[in-house]
Design a protein around this nucleic acid. Structure first.
Lengths: 340, 340
DNA sequence: TCAGCATGATTAATCGTTTAACTTATTACT
DNA sequence: AGTAATAAGTTAAACGATTAATCATGCTGA
């Protein structure tokens, strides 16, 4: 009874328009899709159909359309954590650019767990998404390979497997890390730490390599200045790392944080230990953070071109989906070092 | 040619399984949906079907299923700005709880513009979403009314129109604002400002009312201590407001920020004017912010139970969608005042 | 012997759209 | 007049899944 009540508000379909105008469903479809050129439908009939469609506020059923055409005009976006500002901003722009092309976005989180990533891919596939934008988790190479085999239009963003034949949009991690570390050295730092995730990610390794080359070149390399923390125990691992770094005999005078979450946790920790930022220790962060504005001095950071990344990812993906481009695209964008 | 190539990877359908096992599509469907009890299908056939489905890694086509059943197992989430941590976190939890019930989430942004909200509702409707979770923008009452008339399962979150017969999940805005303001008064503030959006939102008005009652009760009410800023000109309006408040003859000694975005912008501004936080001015914020951890003292704030909000919203919505509950639910959750 | 029932499966309609192929009537051309 | 071309539509199959209705077979008991 209730169900009947709920169903009573029927959506407007082509059939309804066809009946009310007195033509066949096919004619309505042709007109509404603009395929009535070349003497298919008379001007008057077309006008009547368009009027009726407007009057009834017709909206095509995307499910039916997708089923018939084999395309859903929907893109899956798989990120590690949508509550993280970096991914949130990425999602915002991806959604914006996708919408302009008539695509909707379904978002899924992995929480950096490959099992969840597998599940999410399955979930999105069963929804007949036309393509996928992914920031892959560690150890997900086999999933990416599967998707390639499956011929799923795909773009990796932020992170990538450089040896896989897959579209990607990345930043110049190595160069910007090298440059950022150099900057700390120029500011007079002699003992610079690098805090990063204990993860085997290409982009993370590149950042490490940039740091490494810069300190080595300056003759400042010390193995124990590189500290790795676990994603799942970020807070406690950072605390331990910072505590170690500031207490060891050769006290550090600079820290480079490899990601935004590490930056935030690291700064929190430094404050807890009451370290004199920019007096005793110079820091350098990946990504901007609101917290910076609280300080009486400015903290240098690497700004990623998130909007550009989103724009490129969507363009590459949609070109791929619509068959306009079948070449693999590896797109590298320049991040910016902000010193202010 | 290319298209043919792309199409060559066909998805596994019921038909394929039926052919390979040598039964009809109907039988496969029954077995895979667990509707083969009561002597519908023999154990052996069922086993063969299940095996084959597993072997081929069958995944139901959600579009076809949705078309047939009139339900898409998809929920639309419309927020103001997914790059805002509050909404990002909300989205994270909503997605998590929805997923547990087998629903996917499509996210859309309004940027606080009612025209965009209208567009997004249309876009989501045409995708046959089963229900909608919305943080409505200002002036969107007519859209909500439409949705109610349309009998769309719907839950408003964070914000609401209290007079409309619509499900909602809100916090106790009035009480928590009253309590927070009282707290500032107890700490000795005699001249407390309230900075809020120039928006006619129920939840915003409630927060203002809480502030108002508290200062009035203490005989501290002054009309010009309430400053309103525009969403689209947040930074500049906040700057002007703060500048005014700290420079006027009766200098303020406390500020209550009505939302998280206002808190962040406000603190930035205070730092710019070099105000001595917690010496000259006590502040009170809505929502937590990473920036707080940079300070040598703790900033009191109102913590919203975001996960609980998401949980309730999803429960109410899905009960509604599945016809388990047709009563209108107005759910109020308690926010927490964190002083540390 | 045969109605009645249980078991195990199939048939066919349906959801809303798209589109190739077909129809029918009119006009144009030689 | 006969053929072709054009205009203005319609028909019907298909996409993949669900499900009410039907069918076929074997068995039971009076």
């Amino acid at each position: 009874m209730l169900k009947l009540l709920l169903k009573s508000v029927k959506r407007v379909s082509l059939k309804r328009i066809a009946e009310e105008v007195g033509v066949s469903i096919a004619t309505v479809s042709l007109v509404l899709n603009g395929k009535d050129k070349g003497g298919r439908v008379s001007k008057e009939t077309a006008a009547k159909i368009l009027d009726k469609a407007a009057e009834l506020n017709y909206m095509p059923n995307t499910l039916a359309k997708g089923l018939k055409l084999g395309r859903s005009k929907t893109i899956g976006l798989i990120v590690a954590d949508i509550s993280n500002v970096f991914f949130g901003t990425l999602a915002l722009y991806i959604q914006e650019y996708a919408e302009k092309e008539g695509y909707a976005i379904i978002i899924a989180n992995t929480n950096e767990q490959v099992k969840r990533m597998e599940k999410m891919i399955g979930l999105l596939k069963s929804r007949q998404i036309d393509g996928l934008i992914i920031t892959p988790t560690e150890g997900s190479e086999y999933l990416i390979k599967d998707l390639i085999k499956y011929q799923m239009p795909l773009v990796l963003v932020d992170r990538s497997y450089p040896n896989l034949p897959v579209n990607s949009v990345l930043i110049n991690n190595y160069e910007i890390s090298y440059k950022s570390t150099k900057q700390l050295i120029q500011q007079g730092c002699k003992n610079i730490a690098f805090i990063t995730y204990k993860q085997d990610h290409f982009h993370i390794n590149e950042r490490k390599r940039g740091y490494y080359e810069a300190v080595k070149e300056a003759g400042l390399y010390k193995a124990h200045n590189i500290q790795e923390v676990r994603y799942d125990f970020l807070r406690s691992d950072i605390d331990r790392a910072i505590s170690y770094l500031v207490k060891k005999e050769e006290k550090i005078d600079g820290i480079f944080f490899a990601t935004n979450s590490i930056s935030i946790a690291g700064i929190k920790s430094l404050c807890k230990y009451n370290m004199g930022l920019q007096k005793d220790i110079q820091i350098m962060c990946f990504d901007e953070c609101d917290a910076f504005y609280l300080l009486p001095f400015s903290i240098p950071f690497v700004r990623q071109p998130i909007e550009e990344m989103a724009k490129h990812a969507i363009k590459i993906l949609i070109d791929n989906i619509e068959g306009k481009n079948i070449e693999i695209e590896k797109c590298f964008l320049d991040a910016e070092l902000i010193l202010k």
